[in-house]
Structures are given as C-alpha cells and as structure tokens.
Write a protein that binds this DNA or RNA. Structure first.
Lengths: 193, 193
DNA sequence: CATCGATGTGTACACTTGTTCACTAATGTG
DNA sequence: CACATTAGTGAACAAGTGTACACATCGATG
C-alpha cells in the first residue's frame, strides 16, 4: 500500500498502476502481491479505509485547536492545508479516486466525504452555530463546504509542495469561499425560499 | 479521439488507456495512431481542445434560453445537466482529467474552467446582477459557482444516465447550492469583510 | 493522367503484464 | 521444541504493450 501511494505521489495515476509495478516499488516479487490483495481494486479499497483514519485524525486536531477561536474558518482551512501537505499522496489518491475507474473506490471516497460532512454538521450544532437552519439545510451547507474544500485539494495538489506563495493564495481563496458560503447559510430561509 | 472517448464512456479511466487499445476500438491498426498523435498525452490535449468547443456551445445555449427568465439558476442548472447527459463521455474525460496524470491535460481543463468562470462573470455584469461586488469578488463568486457545478458533474456521472429520479435530486441539490452561494454573494462586503 | 501528401497496413522486436504453481523462509502459538 | 500459519521466492506461460520500418491505398491538385 505504501508502494502504491509512493507511485501516486510521484505523479502516476492510480488507475494506471499495475501489480508488477507496485511490487517492484515495494521491493518484493510480483507473486507476493496476492498474499495481501486479490487485485488492484482491492488494494484501492484498503487505501480508502486508511484514508478514513487520516481524515478522522484531521478532524480531531481541528476540533482541538479551533474551539476557543473566533477565526474558526481560517484556522480550519489552515489545518486542512497542513494535513493535505503532510499526507500528500493520500490526498492525491483521494482526488484521483473521485473520478477513478473503480466504482467501489469511488463510492468509498464519496462515503468518507459524507461522513466528514455529517461530523461537521454535528460540530456546528454543538457550537450553537447556524441554529436557524433545519437539519436538512444544515446538511446541505456542510455538504457544500466539504465539496468546496475537496475541490481546493485539487488546486493544492497541483502546485509544488514548497511553493509557499501559491499555497498561501489557495488557503486565502478557500477561506473566502467558505466565508461566502456561511454568509449565504446565515441568511438562508430568512429572506429566501 | 472518438474511440478514446468511447472507452472512457464505457467506464475506463483515460490514464489507463493504451495506444493499441484505442486503435483497436477505432478499428484501425496500431501504427496508424502515430499519423495523428505523438502519444496518449497528445491525444488528451486535443480532447481538451474539443472540450472547449462543447463548453462554448453549452454557454451559448444557456445565454439564449435564460435571458428573460427569473428562474435563472434553475434553468442554467437544467441546461448544464442536459449537456452533461448528451456529452457524457466528454464530461467524464473532464472530471478524470482534473486529477489526471498528465500535467498538461490537467492545466488545460483548469484553464477551460477559468474561461467559463470569466464568461459567467461577464454575463452577470451584463444582466446588471451583483453590481455591488468588486471585480475581484465577482470573480471569486463565479469561480466558486463553476467549482460547485463541476463537482456536481461527478455526482451526475456516477449515476446511470436514465435514473431520472437521482438525476432530478442532483439537479435540485445543485440548484440549492448555487442559490446559497448567490445569497452569500448578495450579502458579501455589506455586512462582512 | 501523373504525382504528392496524408492515411492506413503488415511484420517484426524487445519488453512488460497478470496469474499459476510448487517451494522456502520467517513468524508466533501450543 | 514442534508445528501451523503467514509472507516471500523463482520459474514459467500466454497475452498484451509501444514503437520502427517499408510498403500500399486513397483523394486532391498540378
């Protein structure tokens, strides 16, 4: 799994990886692959599971560092960017998988994103934010937030990991996106629909 | 190029296509490939160019059908969904390319999206909408809109093309996303920033 | 009609690929 | 220690891969 991630990190697309290629990178003979996975899709699915752990760690850190701050959005985006940098290959895999060729991996990632959105909704409720929104509308908002962040991931992963200027730009832009969304959510249902 | 698109439409990922595979689908001998393209990346780039045409056609139709309506967002989303269905393979290719393995294709698609966003900004100005926003903030808004629609594409392309119920759901959800964004944009800078 | 450029063909070569099978080395449990 | 499970090995196979080269076929233009 590390070998596959390493190759993805080197710019390859997961869908184009072969068994021999992965085992070569892992420093192991091709047949060993079958001791652990039935095929590449299987490997992908197990990576999705690990991706879940990475996301959960990120949420935990965000919850811990952001509670007493008023710059909630800005700090959360910062933590997200930091994690995306620290686990670059994982997030590359995630971005690729969203439109990947294995239906199962695709569904797995989508499901992780749903979970993430629902946890975000819980947190907002807990912080007594957006209390005027119905549960459905809060879910809608959180879904939109998660999508926006996920898309920023694509930007983030396409710039060199030490181009601090561009990374800063992406962080600022993402922050503004979220501010605009929450601004819309704040006025939702009062003067619309 | 049609052959490559056809394979993508059948569920394959562009990054995993080979020259022989594409020529086989095209009903032509492998060596003929080199008469038209230097390699698969080259083919991808030419597909991006054609994608530009598809997007432009879509914009033209949206502009024609939406001018005199008050349900601007809803109708635009409808037109988008219709085009995504009609050119399924093209949009699949676009969704894949955003996190694809060819840097050039990636950049090409990104650039098409920027163009799309800037055209949208022009249209909004022309319709005298969002006039309180600075040019920068209008660009920000349009970028967010385009991203949101592009992400919906992923949803759209992952459901069967004749599952009318799910497609309707996606259309409604996307419409609400955009309404929320424009609601936020409407209040932007007046009571924030 | 002759010629030229674009497109397509057939053959060939050196590799790479997924998967199988029987075998060996390492590991932890009774 | 003995034993069972797990992880890794090596050789083999049929099939697929990218690419090179010389040759054939076509439509248009002189």
């Amino acid at each position: 799994m590390n070998a596959a991630l390493a190759l993805v990190g080197k710019g390859r697309h997961f869908a184009s990886l072969g068994i021999r290629e992965v085992t070569r990178q892992a420093g192991v003979v091709p047949t060993s692959f079958y001791r652990h996975f039935r095929n590449m899709d299987d490997l992908g699915l197990q990576l999705v599971d690990e991706l879940g752990l990475v996301l959960r760690r990120m949420m935990r850190e965000a919850r811990a560092n952001v509670l007493q701050s008023d710059k909630l959005i800005e700090e959360s985006v910062g933590i997200f960017v930091a994690h995306a940098q620290a686990n670059r290959s994982f997030f590359l895999f995630m971005a690729q998988g969203l439109a990947g060729e294995s239906r199962a991996v695709q569904e797995g990632i989508r499901s992780e994103m749903r979970f993430f959105a629902s946890e975000l909704a819980n947190d907002l409720r807990r912080l007594r934010l957006m209390e005027h929104l119905s549960d459905t509308d809060l879910d809608l908002t959180c879904d939109l937030v998660v999508r926006t962040v996920a898309f920023s991931l694509t930007d983030l992963l396409s710039v060199s990991q030490d181009d601090d200027y561009q990374i800063g730009q992406i962080r600022k832009r993402t922050t503004r996106f979220l501010q605009m969304i929450f601004l819309g959510a704040g006025h939702w249902q009062s003067d619309s629909a």
